[in-house]
C-alpha cells in the first residue's frame, strides 16, 4: 500500500496527474475523498475533454479526451440490475459497490476496455445520476448528443433533466425515424431546443406536417429527408445556418421566402442551402431586383462554401441594406439552392 493521502497536496496532485483519464475516473469512484481529489485534477485539464450522451438501445455517457497525439475515449453505461444478472458471465472484473459521490446506491463494474457498467434499480434514474457525476467531475456540460432508436419516453425524460443542468449541448445528432406518434415527436422536439448545432432526421406524418407550428431556431440546423419542410415550416426556421436536403419545395416557395427575407424576415440567417425539387433560378428570382456577377468574393460573407469562382452569383439586397448572394451548386444529381448573407 502506498499512503497517497499522506503526501502533501501538491505531490498528491502530481501523482494523480500521472494517471490517464480512465484511471483517474476509476480513482474518483473509490470514495468521496478520492472523488474530490480527482475532480481537482480533472477540472484543470477539462478543455481537453468532451462529454457525449448516447440515447439508443442503452444509455451511456462517453468521455473523449486528447492526449499528446491521439484522441481517446471511455464510456459509462447505465443498466438495470436485471441486465447485470443476464450478462454477468461476459465481464471478468468483479462487481463493486459505490455511491457515486453520495448519489447512489449503485453497483458498477469496470473493464480494461475502457468502459464502466453501472447497475441500478431504475436505469433512467441511474443514468441521470451518472450524468450528474461525470458533469461534476469534469465541470463540463454535455457537448454532444446522439439520439436514435431509443425508448422515446424514457429518453425524453433524460433530455428534460439534462436541460435543467447548466450549459447547452453543442451538437446533436437526432434520428427520430423510429418515432411513430406525433405527440412523442413533439415532446422530443421540445427537449432539443437547447442544442446549438442539430442534425435532424425524422419522418413525420401528414397530420404533424399540417399542424406543427413550432419555431426551429438553432445556430445550425441540418435536415436530411426534409420532405416535411414546407414553406410554412421553412418560414419558422430562423437559424444561422440551415441545410435541408430532400425537400419538396418549389421555385415559387423559395421565391416567397426570399421576398420575406428582403422585407426584413429571418434576421438570423447567414447561410442557407436547400435541395429543391427543380431549381430554376429565374423563377426563384421572379419579381426580385438582383445583380448578376461572375466573380465571387467569399471573404465578404459570413460563411463560405467551396464553390467555383466562375459560377454565376445573383446579388440581392434587403430593404435595410443587407446583401446576400444567391447561387446554385450541384450535389450528386441534384441542384442545390444556396444563399449567403454578407457579414
Amino acid at each position: 500500500m502506498f499512503p497517497l493521502l499522506l503526501l502533501d497536496p501538491i505531490s498528491c496532485e502530481n501523482v494523480l496527474n500521472q494517471l490517464n483519464p480512465y484511471e483517474l475516473f476509476k480513482f474518483s469512484l473509490c470514495s468521496k475523498i478520492s472523488n474530490r481529489l480527482a475532480r481537482n485534477v480533472a477540472v484543470k485539464v477539462n478543455d481537453f475533454f468532451s462529454l457525449d450522451i448516447h440515447l439508443d438501445d442503452s444509455y451511456s455517457i462517453g468521455i473523449q479526451y486528447e492526449t499528446d497525439h491521439v484522441f481517446e475515449y471511455f464510456s459509462c453505461r447505465s443498466n438495470t440490475i436485471h441486465n447485470m444478472l443476464e450478462g454477468s458471465s461476459i465481464l471478468s472484473k468483479p462487481m463493486e459497490n459505490g455511491k457515486l459521490n453520495g448519489n447512489g446506491p449503485s453497483m458498477f463494474r469496470t473493464s480494461d476496455e475502457k468502459s464502466v457498467e453501472t447497475y441500478w434499480e431504475d436505469e433512467v434514474v441511474g443514468f441521470k445520476l451518472l450524468i450528474e457525476y461525470v458533469m461534476n467531475l469534469y465541470d463540463k456540460p454535455i457537448d454532444i448528443l446522439y439520439f436514435q432508436k431509443t425508448d422515446s419516453l424514457k429518453s425524453t425524460e433524460i433530455l428534460k433533466w439534462i436541460n435543467t443542468r447548466k450549459g447547452s449541448i453543442r451538437f446533436g445528432h437526432v434520428d427520430l425515424c423510429h418515432v411513430n406518434s406525433d405527440q412523442t415527436l413533439s415532446l422530443i422536439l421540445d427537449q432539443i431546443k437547447n442544442v446549438n448545432e442539430l442534425d435532424l432526421v425524422m419522418l413525420p406524418g401528414s397530420e404533424f406536417i399540417k399542424n406543427d407550428t413550432r419555431k426551429y431556431e438553432f445556430k445550425e440546423l441540418t435536415i436530411t429527408n426534409g420532405y416535411w419542410v414546407t414553406l410554412p415550416r421553412l418560414v419558422n426556421m430562423n437559424c444561422n445556418i440551415l441545410n435541408v436536403s430532400g425537400t419538396e419545395l418549389t421555385n415559387s416557395d423559395v421565391n416567397s421566402f426570399l421576398k420575406m427575407w428582403i422585407n426584413g424576415g429571418f434576421d438570423k440567417i447567414k447561410l442557407m442551402s436547400l435541395n429543391v425539387l427543380e431549381v430554376d433560378i429565374l423563377k426563384i428570382l421572379e419579381g426580385i431586383q438582383y445583380q448578376e456577377k461572375n466573380n465571387y468574393s467569399g471573404e465578404s460573407f459570413s460563411v463560405s462554401l467551396d464553390i467555383n469562382k466562375n459560377d454565376i452569383f445573383y446579388i440581392i439586397c434587403r430593404t435595410d441594406g443587407l446583401v446576400a448572394s444567391i447561387y446554385v451548386t450541384k450535389f450528386g444529381k441534384h441542384l442545390v439552392f444556396n444563399m449567403e448573407v454578407e457579414k
Partner: peptide, 9 residues
Amino acid sequence: PEELRIIYG
C-alpha cells in the same frame, strides 16, 4: 476502483 482504494490506502 476497489484495487486502487487498497493500493493507495
